[in-house]
């Protein structure tokens, strides 16, 4: 475990807590894409299949449980909570996220490190996570006013994988045979998808104005 990876995991944890805080305290999911939350629940469900078979560390298992539990409970809140679901903007959250799953699954069936069920599902989760933010970014461009918590959520979610890139560089130079091209490329693509959001996020922060993405 290196500082970049720990920082990445803590940033990821913070993004999830910010979103749970928003939904649980102000009972609103305005500006939050249910599609992205569903994709993330699927990402964790397919990535952590080894939670019972491969014990890495207490930290690893606890974090997996937190990400699984939080992503599924956020989906439940938005879909079923009698107050929260009223603030869900289903007319704006129209990204056809099924169209993201199919190519990711096909790609995982052809490009993976080992052709086993768990490994293909793990690879699928990497490809899916890379594009999972798209429904949320599309929704942000449609909803004019982005509230602070949603903006912070997306920022932290994008930053965590960016920190992981430093972690991969660090591990590449410190551990022999640490080469995971698929993870690296998926991680870079994922982070690049946030590039324009990061730009407007910093602009709004620098000029101390409300975050607004161009239509």
């Amino acid at each position: 475990m290196n500082i970049f990876r720990l920082a990445g995991d803590m940033t990821h944890l913070a993004s999830v807590l910010v979103l749970l805080l928003k939904i649980h305290t102000i009972k609103s999911c305005a500006g939050v894409s249910l599609k992205t939350q569903e994709l993330y629940a699927l990402v964790f469900a397919t990535r952590y299949l080894d939670i019972v078979t491969d014990f890495i560390s207490v930290y690893n298992t606890v974090m997996k449980l937190i990400f699984l539990g939080s992503s599924f409970s956020i989906v439940w809140y938005i879909r079923h909570h009698r107050v929260v679901r009223r603030s869900y903007d289903k007319d704006q959250d129209t990204f056809r996220h099924y169209l993201l799953m199919i190519p990711c699954m096909l790609l995982a069936l052809f490009v993976h490190e080992k052709f086993t069920f768990k490994e293909v599902m793990w690879t699928f989760s990497l490809y899916l996570e890379a594009v999972a933010i798209l429904p949320q970014l599309v929704l942000l461009q449609r909803t004019r006013n982005i509230d602070n918590l949603t903006g912070q959520y997306v920022f932290l979610l994008g930053a965590y994988r960016g920190l992981y890139i430093f972690n991969w560089i660090y591990r590449y130079f410190t551990e022999p045979h640490f080469v995971h091209w698929i993870t690296w490329i998926a991680g870079v693509v994922q982070t690049l998808l946030y590039a324009d959001f990061f730009y407007y996020y910093f602009e709004s922060w620098k000029n101390n104005v409300r975050l607004q993405l161009p239509a």
Binding site: R47, D54, N60, K64
Partner: peptide, 10 residues
């Protein structure tokens, strides 16, 4: 090599 692919990252 027979090492099972262990994914130690989240």
């Amino acid at each position: 090599e027979g090492t099972t692919l262990k994914h130690d990252e989240l």
